[in-house]
Design a protein around this nucleic acid. Structure first.
Lengths: 203, 203
DNA sequence: CAGAGCATGTAACGTGTTACATGATTGT
DNA sequence: ACAATCATGTAACACGTTACATGCTCTG
């Protein structure tokens, strides 16, 4: 069982206390690239972490009138311990489940045009992802993201290279992955051309 | 929303009537590579498909005594229509969610050895997958799988190349994907070596 | 004073996981 | 007789999605 949301939130809070809303914003600009979650789920998970003692919350006033409040969350000792345990733990990779590939297997139930539409959508999707990942890699490598700066500010200088390098490596992996998908879709489009020409089908 | 299990079952039944158990067996040797499901889920889904009129079931006797029964499922007209509709439909790709990459982003919370352990497990996992996918590609290309033969037997000869080619293409995509993951893990391991040497960190 | 964005949630639902549960039939 | 495998499910739970819901505060 992944349960990555829980641990991603702990990791974000390790950089310093944040309110649920702030956390959700930071989440969208970092972890969400690898683990998407709705804001509503983040609020729910924060409450769960709180009742498990992994984070503590302070209620703060919003604005002058103090008619509204917000809650700032801080990582506890036991939350940090859990974060470290999680990094050590080798998880069973989740079972494969990719609807695009299921469909790719059964494209013969549609026309060649329909098959092309599917593969073009696949390519377009991963082209957009690739571009976003590449941008993020650049930002990370230049240490330009708010969250990363906060992390680095609170860590000893000799650890900075590793902190940045791990993140850059992960996002470069996503770029490579997106490229693989784009190439796959393109080979598929070429295959359809050959099938439609009814000509030879090279191995 | 993917809901691929539903449609994968329809596609399997298009090859001919099968009992739940047979279907589950065939599933494990084909679709499960791209969409994993427990047998218990397959039985549940078959009942749902039945109540939706996409398949019909006949109750058959098992053995001579007929003390036990089994249920053979057949695709209906409306089931076939749904299968074709699904192939036409362009689905929104599901949001990214990969726990291995989340962890790869936060490897700095563990030691270099722990980071290596994670990446080695990643590599081993995808090496095993790659081997299984490659085997499957070979079997498909030689038209050796039981299910594929059944499909081909019930289809016009001129469609055979396309049926085989789509499947081979899909599984080759999975091989490419696995290779990308293996290379990524290896680049990660090299990175850790450089980090540990404390030397230069090339871009 | 209006609209954008801050801020926090709840509820119903769908899908998938895990564990449990049962018993018949076939081959040795 | 025994084991493997055929054959079919149920129940509780975890996780995530979608839609709904509310109201404050800051900026122009």
């Amino acid at each position: 069982m992944p349960m990555s949301l829980r641990h991603a939130l702990l990791a974000l809070l390790e950089a310093g206390a944040m309110t649920g809303y702030e956390l959700a914003k930071q989440f969208d600009q970092s972890v969400a690239y690898v683990w998407h979650a709705q804001h509503s789920q983040i609020y729910t998970e924060l409450r769960r972490l709180e009742s498990g003692g992994l984070v503590v919350a302070r209620t703060l006033a919003r604005g002058d009138k103090a008619l509204a409040t917000k809650r700032a969350y801080t990582l506890t000792e036991s939350g940090l311990a859990e974060l470290r345990r999680w990094v050590r733990e080798v998880e069973e990779p989740p079972a494969m489940r990719d609807s695009a590939y299921v469909k790719a297997t059964y494209l013969e139930y549609g026309s060649f045009q329909e098959a092309r539409t599917q593969l073009r959508a696949h390519r377009a999707h991963y082209e957009a992802l690739r571009d976003r990942y590449e941008l993020h890699v650049d930002q990370l490598a230049r240490r330009e993201t708010a969250l990363l700066r906060r992390r680095l500010a609170g860590s000893p200088a000799e650890s900075h290279d590793a902190i940045v390098a791990y993140k850059v490596h992960a996002y470069r992996g996503l770029v490579a992955r997106a490229r693989t998908e784009i190439e796959w879709a393109e080979r598929g489009l070429e295959l359809i051309d050959r099938l439609e020409d009814g000509g030879t089908l090279p191995k």
